[in-house]
Design a protein around this nucleic acid. Structure first.
Length: 219
DNA sequence: GCGACAG
DNA sequence: ATCTTGTCGC
């Protein structure tokens, strides 16, 4: 595990080094437990609260939730999000008793200028499968996916398919799905689709989105 | 030099 | 991310 308090320059170099270690493996069949993670900040922005929910895809229920505060040690810099958010998310993950089959992060995986978005970075450090499911684009080009739910178009960056722009709801802005660590793009899209209920974001992510801001004023 | 830019 | 009410639409 490397340290998080480094310069933006060093962070960028580290990303290039870590990116070589990202694996692309098929997920086991019959995925049942999917974790969703998110983060919120204290009013003064000096601390951040990481939160994780464990979602049972079979029962369609949240079965566990964890929270963890960490000092905010890095500014928001597009492309360096993990150095700001990963410590709090990892701290919350460590408190989890259950073992998720895969984690969905509210950010990009390899759909990143150096193929090392938050989802990829966290997956590598946990050595667990992770999926990036972001609400907007960081890099790459694409055309709009067809209107039908479940359909997608490739997200292409520097002549490489780095993700899928996926329609999760009719008539609603699509989401950006990409591989994190130890997953294939096809499996990543499959899991996200399987997790989508009646909203745009997959349920684990949405539940984490609801959980974390609710505890912003606690610790 | 000029845009683009996860959360 | 966060500050914030009403409002348009199914």
């Amino acid at each position: 595990m490397h340290r998080w308090s480094i310069s933006p320059r060093a962070a960028t170099r580290l990303q290039c080094r870590l990116a070589e270690r990202i694996r692309c493996d098929p997920l086991p069949t019959n995925i049942r437990f999917v974790a969703g993670a998110d983060l919120a900040f204290s009013a003064d922005g000096r601390r951040c609260l990481g939160g994780v929910v464990l979602y049972d895809l079979k029962e369609r229920l949240v079965i566990e939730q964890t929270l963890a505060w960490r000092p905010t040690r890095f500014p928001y810099v597009p492309g360096l999000l993990s150095f700001r958010e990963a410590p709090a998310v990892l701290a919350a993950v460590r408190k989890l008793k259950g073992i998720p089959d895969v984690f969905i992060l509210d950010a990009h995986g390899v759909a990143h200028p150096r193929r090392m978005g938050l989802a990829a970075h966290i997956g590598l450090l946990m050595d667990r499968p992770t999926i990036g499911c972001a609400k907007s684009r960081l890099c790459g080009r694409h055309v709009d996916p067809p209107a039908q739910v479940g359909r997608s178009t490739p997200l292409i960056d520097r002549n490489e398919i780095v993700g899928a722009v996926l329609r999760t709801r009719p008539g609603v802005k699509p989401v950006y799905v990409s591989r994190g660590h130890r997953v294939t793009l096809v499996d990543a899209v499959r899991v996200v689709i399987a997790c989508v209920g009646r909203y745009r974001l997959p349920e684990p992510t949405r539940q984490a989105h609801i959980l974390v801001p609710r505890h912003r004023h606690d610790g």
